[in-house]
Amino acid sequence: MRILRALHHFLRSDARHFQIAFLQGFLAYGVLALGWDAEWPRYAVLVATCLLVQTLFIRWKGLPWHTLKSALVTGSGMSLLLKSDSLAVLAMGAAIAIGSKFFLRVDGKHVFNPGNLGIGAAVLLTGDAWVSPGQWGSGPVLAFLLGAAGCMVVLRVGRIDTSLAFLATYAALEFARQVLYLGWEPEVWLHRMTNGALLLFTFFMITDPMTTPKAQGARIGWSMAIGILAFVLGTAWWINATPIWSLLIISAATPALDRLWKGRRFTWTPGAPLTPATTNNR
């Protein structure tokens, strides 16, 4: 019991601990229960590249070592989504992901969600990587697992508004299209909404507190815009994994939203003094 308590205390001390535990748990679930190919070298390359690049920047810019946790979150998240036959492509994606945090900055804050940008870059630039939105399947049990785990993390970082605004917008539009307009049974809509990749995105990617707009109102509008664009891309052009592309596009507007609506800057370690080093780097 004492060990459990200690473990729990450790997990609670930083929301990223939860995040890392869950993302790794999902990976294990995927490999063990869903029969994914256990592509350990690929996962290892993604995580190792993220950590390595982050280490370089820590040494170069004198950042605190706890920022490595953020790199681990990025690497774990990318392991769940990005696939490629080539290890070099994965390494490139991971390097771009972490590198973007230091090079693509506006007003002392990085613009793109690192994992999101890394995935986008690997898929678009090389044509040798892909995302498998179907690899999770769909189902109420899956939705519960991802949702519950997601809420635990998202509530802690105070970004539940982002998740809900996105999901509600996207689900409402899909409902209007699939059920009200096309006339499919609600089951078809439910099958789409309980897709594992969508939920993973909703709770573990869009909610990154470092790259969401700082003011709550702006954040909700921003999330809704992502939902709308994801719906439009999927409906009009039959693009797959649209939330990922939508987030990438809408993220470009984040700095503008931050200038228009000021908000408090997020920090992973609430007790620590607010220095640029601890606040800026995820």
């Binding site: 029969g35 498998s132 939105p133 179907g134 690899q135 769909s138 099958h191 789409r192 897709n195 797959n240």
Partner: peptide, 13 residues
């Protein structure tokens, strides 16, 4: 280019 996979259901072996 390569494999065809299902987008809205799992493709398993």
């Amino acid at each position: 280019t390569g494999r065809v996979e299902c987008v809205n259901y799992r493709t398993v072996k």
